[in-house]
Amino acid sequence: MAAARKATNWFAIGITAAAVVVVLVVGGVVWFANSQATSPGTLPQSSAVNTDTGAISVGSGSKTVDTYVDFMCPICNSFEQSYGPTLQQLVDDGTITLNIHPISILDRSSQGTQYSTRSASAAYCVAVDDPANIPAFVKAMYAQQPAEGTSGLDDATIASIATSAGASDAVTSCINDGTYEKYVTAMTRQTPIQSGASGVSTPTIVVNGTLLTNKTDLTGDPQKDIVARLNG
């Protein structure tokens, strides 16, 4: 009887240990799945990219202007046409560091092709290849901006725009592979646009820490909206 009881006890212990192992394995699988879902993926390693914020920096001025833009957003394009020359001049004369945050909030408007995410990822490909080409790339992307509700530009066209803006041929594989798409998604989640702030949408501008939105703060006058705030 004692031997029988001992055998039963070992059996129970074995079952308990096996159950613990199963729980640990299941927990590990769930943790891994969750970590993969929230992981930023491959980080764009470039001297011009702040991988914590997603900002691609242009210039080296002591004052800062951050722009949060979606390449499918028509109002972002209008902002580029109205404010872009002034911002570039402020970069060129050493007044500001322009921090460009390419984000993806309009994937729903590209017939399932995820154009906003793909084009934002391409911007990081260009920044990693040579950040000096970012201003030309951004300008060219807006010059060929697709309409909302279309499938957007395909990867081959985006890569052609990138190389025309000065990027090397190596950028093509980065764009085709969607190398930084997960990173774009992760950075988009933490933008002011996704924080629930009332009235915030693209384009959103931050001038020396002051949040401006296209609905209430941008009048179309860069001297009033940007320069005056920098000097104020």
Results as ranks from 00 to 15, higher is better:
residue 121 S to E: 05
residue 49 V to R: 05
residue 4 A to R: 15
residue 8 T to C: 05
residue 71 F to Y: 13
residue 98 L to N: 10
residue 199 G to I: 02
residue 75 I to C: 05
residue 49 V to K: 05
residue 66 D to T: 11
residue 141 M to D: 13
residue 88 Q to Y: 10
residue 73 C to F: 00
residue 110 S to Q: 04
residue 115 Y to T: 13
residue 7 A to F: 05
residue 206 V to F: 12
residue 156 A to Q: 14
residue 95 T to H: 05
residue 161 I to S: 14
residue 208 N to Q: 06
residue 56 I to S: 02
residue 43 L to E: 12
residue 123 A to S: 14
residue 174 C to T: 11
residue 6 K to N: 15
residue 101 H to I: 07
residue 164 S to A: 14
residue 62 S to L: 08
residue 172 T to A: 12
residue 87 L to H: 12
residue 226 I to G: 04
residue 161 I to V: 14
residue 14 G to Y: 03
residue 136 A to G: 08
residue 230 L to Y: 03
residue 25 V to C: 02
residue 179 T to G: 04
residue 207 V to L: 06
residue 92 D to L: 04
residue 63 K to W: 08
residue 29 V to L: 10
residue 42 T to P: 07
residue 213 T to C: 05
residue 125 C to W: 00
residue 34 N to L: 03
residue 31 W to L: 09
residue 78 S to L: 09
residue 118 R to F: 00
residue 26 V to D: 08
residue 221 D to G: 00
residue 81 Q to T: 13
residue 42 T to C: 02
residue 139 K to C: 05
residue 172 T to C: 05
residue 27 G to C: 02
residue 187 M to W: 06
residue 215 K to D: 15
residue 132 A to I: 00
residue 166 G to S: 06
residue 46 S to R: 07
residue 232 G to V: 02
residue 76 C to V: 03
residue 172 T to N: 12
residue 112 G to C: 04
residue 138 V to G: 09
residue 208 N to E: 05
residue 147 A to M: 08
residue 52 D to K: 14
residue 120 A to R: 01
residue 227 V to P: 00
residue 186 A to F: 05
residue 139 K to Y: 03
residue 78 S to Y: 07
residue 68 Y to V: 00
residue 165 A to Y: 11
residue 151 S to N: 14
residue 140 A to C: 05
residue 226 I to K: 07
residue 228 A to I: 02
residue 210 T to P: 02
residue 170 A to R: 14
residue 209 G to I: 10
residue 116 S to F: 06
residue 103 I to C: 05
residue 219 T to W: 02
residue 25 V to E: 09
residue 17 A to D: 14
residue 65 V to I: 09
residue 141 M to A: 11
residue 20 V to Q: 13
residue 20 V to M: 13
residue 53 T to A: 03
residue 195 S to N: 08
residue 202 T to R: 08
residue 52 D to Y: 04
residue 180 Y to W: 06
residue 98 L to M: 11
residue 74 P to A: 01
residue 171 V to Q: 09
residue 141 M to C: 07
residue 89 Q to Y: 04
residue 208 N to V: 01
residue 187 M to P: 10
residue 6 K to W: 06
residue 207 V to F: 04
residue 112 G to Y: 00
residue 119 S to C: 10
residue 34 N to P: 08
residue 33 A to R: 15
residue 197 A to L: 07
residue 216 T to M: 09
residue 148 E to V: 07
residue 119 S to E: 15
residue 45 Q to N: 12
residue 133 N to M: 00
residue 40 P to D: 06
residue 102 P to V: 11
residue 195 S to M: 01
residue 106 L to H: 09
residue 187 M to K: 11
residue 138 V to D: 15
residue 162 A to R: 11
residue 21 V to I: 15
residue 10 W to G: 15
residue 81 Q to F: 02
residue 162 A to G: 11
residue 164 S to D: 15
residue 145 Q to H: 10
residue 160 S to P: 11
residue 13 I to M: 12
residue 23 V to M: 07
residue 147 A to S: 14
residue 164 S to I: 01
residue 173 S to V: 06
residue 102 P to R: 04
residue 100 I to V: 12
residue 2 A to M: 10
residue 17 A to E: 13
residue 104 S to P: 01
residue 42 T to Q: 10
residue 187 M to F: 02
